[in-house]
Design a protein around this nucleic acid. Structure first.
Lengths: 248, 248
DNA sequence: GCCTGCTTTTGATTTGGGTCAAGGTTCTGT
DNA sequence: ACAGAACCTTGACCCAAATCAAAAGCAGGC
């Protein structure tokens, strides 16, 4: 199944821009009509900036294809990625005027956008959508807090294993499988992007990937294509005690 | 003004358990009555656990007095604090069955609780409350992501300066002041708790506090009582480029 | 083919913060 | 007032990851 299909599934009922993990039985016809009305598409090239932190952002959106990152920066250039947007992910802050982070397309990116004002109006009128949005935000908060544990307490090797596990899990969910046993997928990030996500340098990322390869935890074909022979082994390396459903 | 007073202000309209930074013009009389009905108080002793991650949690709550922490742990005992609850802060996950983190009282703690079921019912009926809850969750998400930058990219000295600045800011807001110039307050955390929050060891925390004291960035009376001679200097040490309204 | 400009890997060296250890302070209960 | 227990500070040493440096892989354009 393609990423485009995954997006279609996530927008299942055709009405709600919000990701649905299960079938959505909530949306009503007029909501559908309203959303279709305010919907439009925007595409970005790899490397292009979607928004800068502090800029006005007059839309919310759902990623259709491609990958974008949310990053924080300090004046001296140190950067920390705080979120990764994959197809079917939602981005935007209903009720907020401005963007809080830099949003940057790391591949060619297609987004399904909704103008914010009418979207917010719809939210007020349809509590189920607002509730779903709250759930999604709570999910993101859980993910962010799990990531805080990684950034604060995990070793470089554990960080890499965690990231690979998260991407594997995410990839499996796009394929409607549960993550287990042998898994094959592509890393959607450069070494530098991984470093920004994990609070490491790209050299350390490269070294630890080599080490995990040497130790048989992962296999690499080329630089991006990964095979995981044993997902449980990877989880052990990641130091995860829970099933970590939250992240990304 | 006492902490109790701060709580009263945060619950200003007397109806909504949700923290209001400005005057709340939203709540209607029946919501008030409903909330009063489902409201009860719980107190915990210092060190007592409010909930463990994964446990059933059938209430949401607002901190009246005292301090609690949200922590994540790994099996081997490494812990990372992911949130700090001060008076007027809200805790709980409407729509979720279980707690996601360990919530531990670090001082004697009084919480104003609401049974979750009726609270959720009210949320569905009153979109303003749901919207306010979404705003709060977005605030928490912003804070978590700002914290990710700290954990991933800041030096030990910057981390300490950031934490002190955040506590100063928070203390000022309880006193209805804006943080600036000379400030005096108490650190509500032990060195160990600070270490857990910052992803450091308690020895490093102690050393860096000593260093900031030696360099005149902070002054200490005893172990807890802090004077900041120049708030802007502290912010510079923290490496903050924004005004950091989010954190805690 | 063969430049040119990435991205990635690997090596050598340095360093910030962790670890281990020993005292010092402050608080609490008797 | 005193004992014991937390909590905090400081020192010595070590190590994981950063930094500095160089070379290798790889992709696109001519």
């Amino acid at each position: 199944m393609s990423l485009q299909d995954a997006h279609n599934i996530s927008l299942q009922c055709g009405a709600c821009p919000i990701r649905h993990r299960a079938v959505c039985a909530r949306c009503e016809t007029d909501e559908l009509a309203l959303l279709e009305e305010i919907k439009y598409y925007r595409s970005f090239e790899a490397g292009q900036t979607v928004t800068w932190a502090g800029d006005k952002m007059d839309f919310v959106a759902s990623v259709v294809s491609g990958i974008a990152t949310l990053t924080q920066t300090m004046e001296d250039g140190r950067t920390q990625m705080v979120g990764l947007l994959l197809p079917s992910d939602f981005v935007g802050r209903p009720g907020r005027e401005t963007a809080a982070y830099n949003v940057i397309a790391t591949t060619d990116l297609l987004m399904c956008c909704f103008r914010k004002r009418p979207f917010e109006e719809m939210m007020v009128r349809t509590p189920h959508v607002a509730q779903r949005l709250l759930e999604m935000t709570l999910d993101e908060l859980d993910a962010a807090r799990e990531w805080m544990l990684l950034l604060g307490r995990k070793t470089a090797r554990e960080k890499i294993a965690s990231l690979v596990a998260i991407i594997a899990r995410r990839d499996a969910s796009l394929k409607l499988r549960s993550p287990q046993g042998r898994m094959v997928f592509d890393l959607p990030l450069t070494r530098e992007a991984m470093a920004d996500y994990l609070g490491l340098t790209l050299e350390t990322v490269s070294r630890q990937i080599s080490a995990l390869k040497r130790d048989g935890v992962i296999e690499l074909q080329g630089k991006r294509h990964v095979t995981i022979p044993d997902f449980d082994l990877l989880l052990t390396e990641a130091g995860d005690d829970n099933d970590g459903g939250y992240l990304i």
